[in-house]
Computed example of a mutant assay.
Amino acid sequence: MSVLTPDRVFASSPITDKDEAIREAGRQLVGAGAVTDSYVDAMFDREKTLSTYMGNFLAIPHGTNEAKDEVLDSALVFIRTAAPIDWDGNEVRFVVGIAGKDGGHLEILSKIALIFSEEEEVEKLLAAPDAEALYALLGSVNEE
Results as ranks from 00 to 15, higher is better:
residue 122 V to Y: 08
residue 74 S to Y: 00
residue 19 D to L: 10
residue 56 N to S: 15
residue 20 E to Y: 06
residue 105 H to Y: 11
residue 91 E to I: 10
residue 34 A to N: 09
residue 77 V to W: 03
residue 32 A to I: 05
residue 90 N to M: 08
residue 95 V to K: 01
residue 128 A to T: 10
residue 64 T to V: 07
residue 52 T to G: 00
residue 73 D to T: 02
residue 65 N to S: 13
residue 49 T to I: 14
residue 46 R to F: 05
residue 95 V to H: 04
residue 71 V to A: 06
residue 120 E to M: 06
residue 74 S to C: 06
residue 104 G to E: 11
residue 125 L to E: 11
residue 65 N to R: 12
residue 101 K to E: 05
residue 16 T to L: 09
residue 47 E to W: 11
residue 126 L to M: 15
residue 84 P to I: 13
residue 81 T to G: 12
residue 25 A to K: 09
residue 86 D to L: 14
residue 125 L to G: 13
residue 127 A to Q: 14
residue 62 H to L: 04
residue 39 Y to T: 01
residue 120 E to T: 11
residue 91 E to R: 14
residue 102 D to E: 14
residue 132 E to L: 05
residue 47 E to Y: 08
residue 131 A to I: 03
residue 94 F to S: 09
residue 24 E to K: 15
residue 107 E to G: 13
residue 117 S to C: 00
residue 45 D to H: 10
residue 117 S to W: 03
residue 45 D to T: 12
residue 120 E to R: 09
residue 130 D to K: 10
residue 22 I to T: 08
residue 130 D to F: 08
residue 21 A to W: 08
residue 56 N to A: 12
residue 123 E to I: 09
residue 52 T to F: 00
residue 21 A to H: 08
residue 78 F to N: 09
residue 70 E to G: 00
residue 57 F to R: 08
residue 62 H to F: 02
residue 83 A to S: 15
residue 28 Q to A: 15
residue 48 K to N: 14
residue 18 K to L: 10
residue 36 T to I: 02
residue 30 V to S: 08
residue 115 I to N: 04
residue 46 R to N: 07
residue 106 L to G: 01
residue 83 A to C: 01
residue 118 E to M: 07
residue 44 F to V: 08
residue 54 M to T: 04
residue 17 D to N: 15
residue 68 K to A: 04
residue 56 N to T: 03
residue 80 R to C: 12
residue 49 T to N: 12
residue 35 V to G: 01
residue 132 E to D: 14
residue 118 E to H: 09
residue 123 E to P: 01
residue 25 A to V: 11
residue 102 D to V: 00
residue 33 G to F: 08
residue 36 T to N: 12
residue 123 E to S: 14
residue 45 D to Q: 15
residue 19 D to W: 01
residue 71 V to C: 00
residue 122 V to S: 10
residue 53 Y to C: 05
residue 51 S to I: 06
residue 16 T to Y: 07
residue 78 F to S: 06
residue 54 M to D: 04
residue 115 I to P: 00
residue 27 R to A: 15
residue 97 G to A: 02
residue 43 M to N: 03
residue 41 D to E: 14
residue 96 V to K: 05
residue 127 A to I: 07
residue 110 S to H: 05
